[in-house]
């Protein structure tokens, strides 16, 4: 037996042995395994082709212009156009997402998991959050356009024309709202994974609820919460559809305010995904190269956040077994 498992086809191999050792042809099983295996191989192949296509397309710009591409303004000629304003816009939109959706989302998750009892109201909020997570992103754009832009219209009354509200703030809050349900759901999951024994240990020596949350629940759930928030940040940074509705246009190139200049918040906002959309629609190979280069910049940003999230999670999964 031991020998035949090593692949020694001796003449004494009986039918029984063959059956037990599985040497009888299991072609059906093999085909099935090949089928499901090739599914995942296909997905990975697409990823490779996509990245290869984009990077080779962007190569002339990346090698030819390098950092100059990042620091140059948007121009009407492809060879001169850079991504300074949209990069700056995307950065600040990310800041808004972090500042608005993280505290609110984590607070909501704490309420739902630690404070709220299992009642009709809680279940309604829960259902509502899960449904919000499934609302198409373009619909959030409608919310941004009709509510936030209108709100900021009044905020910058002396600014450019009738649509002064289409600022980085309006765009940032729209995407913060879009990210909120994902932040809540992932933070809730992380909080639910905190062992009940830790909470009991805290309560057992007379800690109050807020103390248990602060000293036991949040430290334990922090990596999970951080992973979820980074993933939602990555998603928000890559979103274009809601921003189109909020009103990002390429026509006005905007002033040359600095990266941290407050004046930019009164201007019409720019964002990388929108710039990519506009570039992609322009004819000519030179524009396609610039588009690909802008995509590489966006991908680096988004994948950095994603990879950080994945690494963080894997590290802690390993640590906690």
């Amino acid at each position: 037996m031991a020998l035949s498992t090593l692949g020694n086809h001796s003449v004494t191999t009986t039918a029984v042995e063959r059956a037990i050792l599985g040497k009888g042809s299991d072609s059906k099983g093999l085909i099935f395994k090949l089928l499901v295996g090739s599914s995942i191989a296909f997905a990975l192949l697409v990823l490779v082709v996509l990245l290869f296509d984009v990077v080779t397309g962007a190569w002339p710009v990346l090698t030819g212009r390098g950092a100059d591409f990042l620091s140059s303004d948007l121009r009407s000629r492809a060879s001169e156009s850079g991504v300074f304003q949209p990069l700056r816009g995307t950065f600040w939109i990310g800041v808004f997402v972090v500042v608005f959706s993280f505290p609110v989302g984590i607070g909501a998750a704490i309420y739902l998991e630690e404070y709220a009892g299992d009642n009709v109201f809680t279940r309604f909020i829960d259902l509502n959050i899960r449904n919000l997570a499934g609302v198409p992103s373009v619909v959030y754009g409608i919310l941004g356009f009709s509510i936030f832009v209108k709100f900021f219209d009044g905020f910058f009354p002396n600014s450019v024309g009738q649509h002064a509200g289409k600022t980085t703030a309006a765009a940032g809050i729209t995407l913060a709202v879009l990210a909120l349900p994902i932040v809540i759901i992932t933070a809730s999951e992380a909080i639910r994974a905190v062992p009940q024994a830790l909470r009991e240990g805290g309560y057992g020596v007379g800690a109050t609820k807020s103390q248990v949350v602060r000293t036991q629940v949040l430290p334990y759930a922090a990596p999970g919460i951080l992973t979820g928030t980074l993933l939602s940040l990555a998603r928000a940074l890559g979103e274009a559809a809601p921003l189109i509705l909020v009103g990002a246009v390429q026509d006005k190139l905007g002033g040359r305010t600095g990266f941290f200049d407050f004046a930019q918040f009164g201007e019409q906002f720019k964002a990388l995904p929108i710039t990519i959309t506009n570039f992609a629609g322009r004819p000519g190979d030179d524009w396609q190269e610039v588009t690909a280069a802008a995509i590489v910049v966006l991908l680096v940003l988004v994948l950095m956040a994603n990879t950080a999230a994945i690494l963080l999670r894997n590290r802690f999964e390993k640590k906690r077994g």
Binding site: P195, A197, L198, E200, G201, G202, Y203, G204, V205, G206, A207, T208, Q216, P219, Y220
Partner: peptide, 19 residues
Amino acid sequence: PVEVRRRIGMVFQKPNPFP
């Protein structure tokens, strides 16, 4: 209950030290 638990301590079935 918080005041109660400061006077009446508890040791659990499975050791549950904080991390």
